[in-house]
Structure formats: structure tokens, C-alpha cells
Simulated assay, not measured.
Amino acid sequence: MLVLALRALIALARPPFVWRREFVLQSIFIIRVTLLPIALSIAAWGFAGPGLQAGNFLVTFGTIDRAGGFMVVAIVREFGTFVTATVVAGVVGTTITAELGARKIRDELDALRVLGVDPITYMVAPRILALAMMMMALDVVALLFGVLGGYVASVGILGGTSGGFLVNFFANTTFLDLAASVIKVGIFGVLIGVICCYKGLNVKGGAEGVGRAVNEAVVGCLIAIFFVNLVYTQYFLAAFPDVGVFR
């Protein structure tokens, strides 16, 4: 996988950049198939998780207006990025693995190499780049809908005030939080692209092998997302301890 990632990076940096058209097509595909699922899932989670459950806890102490600050931890730093990554891995990652796997078992990839077309340059590199770039954009959408879901629960259901929610949200939200969130999902995008492309390019055993590769790709992506999320967040909080202060 590391070798594949390095070869893709070299292909992206080498003129004449023949991967540009495929990058645009893949970017459109990613946005089209994941935008609505991400928006709905993170809005529902923001409403039910940090919105209702955490909000009920705050109501007990008469501090429901502090719910806005909790959204920074729940949505911006953690679950917004996690939900974005898992949805993309399940929808786009499986498609990439199945597509490349099908081409592999039909010997299409070997035929391309015979014709002088490098599958890494024309197929793998633009997919990895598209995943990284589009996941950054999708993360912003996820943050907006997640906070909106929490707002509806805190203000519309639990009786908080819009002013209190927004003041506490912006008081606890920093540029570092937003930048760290976007960079993290970009890393997730690279991991998903590399893992899924690797599994697709190394399919064995016919159609059954394609199904097995798709399953392995999803499991591998989830494990990588969990691990990187844990390490990245701990490093971020250690490097910038001020962002962990609840204001």
C-alpha cells in the first residue's frame, strides 16, 4: 500500500497531468453519491447525540445554553469527521474496489499496460486525489448539518436560546479546530483511496474474489480511520492544549 501511495504521488506530480479529466469525473461522482447521506446522517446524529442526550444532561444543571460549546467537541473534532469518512468508505470506497477488481479479473488492466496506459496514473492517482479533496469539502457540509441538528434539539426541543447556543459555539470554536478537522478528513481520504485501490488491484479468485476484496477494503478503511482518528486527536490536543479549555 505504501508503494502504491508513492507511485500515485509521483504520477500526480509528473507532467503532462493526464489524470485531470478523471479527477473531475471522480470528484463529481463522490459529491453526487455522498452529499445527501452525509448531510442526513450527521444531522440526525447531531440531533440525537450531543443535541438531546447531552442536552438533557445540561438541562439537569440548568445550563442548556452551554450546549453550543459541546458541539465543537462532538461534531467538529470527532463525529463529524468520523461520519464523513465512514459514509465515503462505504459508498465510494466499495465502488472503487469493485470497479478495479472487475477490471482486474477481466484482464483489462493488463490490456491497458500493453497499450502503454499506466493504470496508476489514469485510474488510481486521480481517485485518491479526488477522495482527499472532496472529503475536505464534505467535512464542511457535515459540520454545518451536525451543528444544525444539535441546534434544533437544544433550542427547539429542550428550550435553549439561539443566542446562548451560538455565543457558546463560537466562543469555543477556533480556526485551529476547523483546520484540524479538514486536514484530518483529507488524511482519511488518502487512506480510503489507497486501501480500496490496493484491494481492487490485487483481486484474485474471480467474482467471489471481488466480493471478498470489497469486504476487506471496508474493514481496512474502518480500522485505519479509528486508529488515525485516535492518534491525530490526541496529538492535536497535546500540541494545542488551549483548544481543550471549555469557555
Score class of each variant (00 low, 15 high):
64 I>Y: 00
177 D>G: 11
60 T>F: 05
150 G>M: 07
159 G>H: 03
219 V>P: 09
43 A>M: 13
60 T>H: 03
144 L>I: 15
111 A>G: 07
132 A>E: 01
174 T>A: 05
198 Y>L: 07
89 A>W: 00
205 G>Q: 02
204 K>T: 00
190 V>H: 00
240 F>D: 08
206 G>K: 05
131 L>C: 13
242 D>R: 10
32 R>C: 11
72 V>S: 00
189 G>V: 03
115 L>D: 05
116 G>C: 02
202 N>E: 04
83 V>H: 14
72 V>A: 01
8 A>C: 09
2 L>Q: 15
51 G>R: 03
185 V>D: 11
80 G>R: 09
100 L>F: 11
13 A>M: 13
94 T>M: 00
218 V>Y: 09
98 A>N: 07
181 S>P: 10
185 V>F: 11
238 A>M: 12
29 F>L: 10
10 I>S: 15
156 G>K: 04
197 C>D: 01
204 K>D: 02
135 M>T: 04
83 V>K: 14
197 C>I: 00
47 F>G: 01
30 I>M: 12
137 A>P: 07
227 F>R: 02
131 L>G: 11
106 R>H: 14
94 T>D: 01
197 C>Q: 02
204 K>E: 02
158 L>H: 06
49 G>N: 15
124 V>D: 08
159 G>Y: 05
175 F>T: 14
10 I>F: 14
173 T>I: 10
180 A>T: 09
244 G>W: 07
177 D>A: 10
237 L>C: 09
223 I>C: 02
224 A>W: 03
200 G>N: 01
93 G>F: 03
19 W>T: 02
136 M>S: 13
197 C>H: 01
16 P>K: 05
130 A>G: 04
113 R>S: 07
